[in-house]
Simulated scan of single mutants.
Amino acid sequence: MSIFNTLFNYIGQIYTDRLPYFPTNIRVSLLIILFCVITAIELYLYMMVRRAVRSVRSKRMKYWDDYISVLLANMIVFDETDHPHEVVAHFYPKLKKIPLRSKVVNSILVEKILTYHKNFTGKTAEVLSLMYRKLSLDKKAKRKIKNRNWETKIEGIREANEMDLMEMAHLIVEYTDDENALLRMEAQAAYIKLSQSDPFHFLDRAQERILDWHQVVLFEIITKHKKLTIPSFSKWLYSSNDTVVMLCLKLVDHFMQFDAAQEVIKLLKHQNPKIVRKAVEIIGKLELEDAESFMFEIYFNHSEEIKLEILNALGKIASGNYSEFLSSRIYSADVKIKKEALYAIKIDPDHGEEKLRTIYLQTGQENQALIKHVLDDRIR
């Protein structure tokens, strides 16, 4: 112990009594060393305190996580009554004792309720919804939606969406055309589910792009929502937002909306080739004979991709009005065009294969090989 005292006294004397007598470069070096030592000690103390706080917080979260999980599990399996309100009344006093003012505890409870609600239906889901409102968590979700932070807004919107907070629809619609793509997607998905009067109103005001992956999400929500009243999507095919038009075309296609036929045909003259191609695809699926002349009119002005789609659509319509045109395409320099034209001719159930055999006798070896390929039902 005396050795350490002697050492500390020596170091102390260096920095108090002897420091002024050292050369300048040594004084600077000693001060730098002192600064580094003090910084290292402070950093070490900070790390120790931070680790201790994190440990306490972790233990606290573990305690409340287990406590809340047990309470909710008991509430779910509670079978002494079939009335959800009675179940809520029984467990409410216990859940009310939880310190919900704590952000950590509140987030754990909300996360647990949302998870259970997502995985259960019927009485259990109803009990969870009632308890969620009874604990005024819906009011906290409303405050989250109004929060300035976009991540907090998304958190509130997801809660409203999962817990069917219909009264939040008028707040959520404000963010359906937000500049932030993630917030915009969450708001649109939630609005479709929560709006009872006009779930597709967000399409009227959409100026921002609906990204491809976002369209997939919306398409799945719309097509799988059993209680959703499906409108005629033709009204949005005039939108100046190409991504809105594309989404609505996919929905027209899925729901086979023949009432949108004229609007789809008009899109053949659209400036966006992706929209033109999708319009041609729908025309083929709906077998719109009235559109044949319009497709023929634009055929030579487009890329190979759209030309192939037009040939496919003409084959599906199979009116016979453009059989000579299809036959002429087998003399194209593009092999893909040739094959698609031959398949389009073959689709005709009455005269398709007979027509191919006739052409076979009148054409060269290369085309004959393609015709054999097309006539072989084992190959596509």
Rank of each mutant, 00 (worst) to 15 (best):
residue 265 I to T: 02
residue 244 V to L: 01
residue 263 E to L: 03
residue 24 T to V: 09
residue 6 T to S: 09
residue 214 H to L: 02
residue 354 E to A: 14
residue 275 I to E: 02
residue 92 Y to Q: 10
residue 107 S to Q: 12
residue 133 R to Y: 11
residue 147 N to C: 08
residue 45 L to N: 10
residue 9 N to H: 09
residue 142 K to C: 07
residue 297 E to W: 11
residue 377 D to E: 15
residue 161 N to K: 15
residue 168 M to I: 04
residue 304 E to K: 10
residue 202 F to E: 02
residue 200 F to V: 12
residue 153 K to S: 02
residue 38 I to A: 13
residue 255 F to I: 12
residue 207 Q to E: 13
residue 367 N to Q: 15
residue 110 V to L: 09
residue 245 V to S: 02
residue 157 I to P: 00
residue 224 K to R: 15
residue 39 T to K: 14
residue 110 V to N: 07
residue 285 K to C: 05
residue 24 T to C: 00
residue 153 K to A: 03
residue 206 A to H: 02
residue 1 M to W: 12
residue 254 H to F: 15
residue 246 M to H: 10
residue 351 H to E: 00
residue 31 L to W: 08
residue 153 K to G: 03
residue 98 I to T: 07
residue 88 V to W: 06
residue 346 K to V: 00
residue 275 I to W: 01
residue 323 S to Y: 14
residue 161 N to V: 08
residue 203 L to R: 03
residue 135 L to G: 07
residue 39 T to S: 11
residue 26 I to E: 06
residue 90 H to K: 15
residue 335 V to D: 00
residue 366 E to C: 13
residue 177 D to G: 05
residue 63 Y to S: 01
residue 363 T to S: 13
residue 167 E to Q: 06
residue 281 E to H: 14
residue 151 E to D: 07
residue 151 E to S: 13
residue 247 L to A: 03
residue 307 K to T: 03
residue 105 V to W: 02
residue 227 K to Q: 12
residue 85 H to Y: 09
residue 252 V to K: 00
residue 252 V to E: 00
residue 45 L to I: 14
residue 276 V to I: 06
residue 334 D to T: 08
residue 69 S to M: 13
residue 3 I to V: 15
residue 281 E to W: 08
residue 193 K to F: 10
residue 328 S to L: 09
residue 277 R to C: 05
residue 18 R to C: 04
residue 307 K to H: 02
residue 345 I to G: 05
residue 10 Y to I: 07
residue 367 N to V: 15
residue 274 K to R: 15
residue 343 Y to D: 00
residue 172 I to P: 01
residue 113 I to K: 10
residue 90 H to G: 09
residue 337 I to S: 01
residue 28 V to M: 13
residue 109 L to Q: 05
residue 167 E to V: 07
residue 167 E to P: 01
residue 170 H to S: 10
residue 306 I to C: 01
residue 261 A to N: 05
residue 58 S to R: 13
residue 135 L to I: 10
residue 164 D to E: 15
residue 202 F to N: 01
residue 133 R to A: 13
residue 72 L to D: 03
residue 332 S to D: 06
residue 124 T to W: 05
residue 376 D to F: 14
residue 96 K to S: 14
residue 34 L to N: 07
residue 134 K to E: 13
residue 362 Q to H: 12
residue 329 R to K: 15
residue 125 A to E: 00
residue 204 D to G: 00
residue 305 E to I: 09
residue 303 S to F: 04
residue 229 T to W: 11
residue 376 D to I: 10
residue 346 K to Y: 00
residue 6 T to H: 08
residue 301 N to P: 04
residue 230 I to S: 01
residue 337 I to T: 06
residue 320 G to V: 14
residue 72 L to Q: 03
residue 181 A to T: 08
residue 123 K to W: 03
residue 14 I to V: 04
residue 309 E to K: 13
residue 183 L to D: 01
residue 363 T to I: 08
